[in-house]
């Protein structure tokens, strides 16, 4: 927690300028799959879009640390996921995703 900004300094996904600096610590440089980039997850949260790909974010805090704006990225993504659940929008992909996880299989395959 020592690396995280103070709560009052944090901003929401609306402030994102899509610079991609958060992606240095995401799986994007390895997969080169834009859908899995943290930037895309923040873009989805910013644009209030529901998508199973919100679950591709690892929420490990690395992107949040790298963000020049100080966006609470993990919280923004969790909020977006929560909105999906509240709308009853658990997708087929999401159900399959968790089923695979429970079975010990690769959820992204």
């Amino acid at each position: 927690m020592i690396f995280r900004r103070k709560e009052e300094e944090k901003k929401g996904a609306d402030a994102c300028i899509l610079c991609r600096l958060c992606d240095a610590g995401s799986s994007y440089p390895l997969t080169l799959d834009e859908r899995r980039s943290l930037r895309h997850a923040v873009w989805l949260a910013k644009n209030r879009r529901e998508s199973a790909w919100l679950y591709a974010a690892m929420l490990n805090g690395v992107g949040e640390k790298a963000c020049p704006i100080g966006i609470a990225i993990d919280d923004a993504i969790i909020d977006a996921r929560r909105r999906m659940v509240e709308k009853g929008m658990e997708t087929k992909e999401n159900r399959e995703f968790f089923a695979k996880l429970r079975q010990g299989k690769n959820p992204y395959a």
Partner: peptide, 22 residues
């Protein structure tokens, strides 16, 4: 989702592509 992910950059402009090839 791929078309959506490639429909923007850091400029704020948006435009849905036909396909993405790597």
């Amino acid at each position: 989702e791929s078309l959506l992910a490639y429909s923007y950059d850091a400029s704020g402009l948006e435009g849905r592509p036909l396909a993405v090839l790597k």
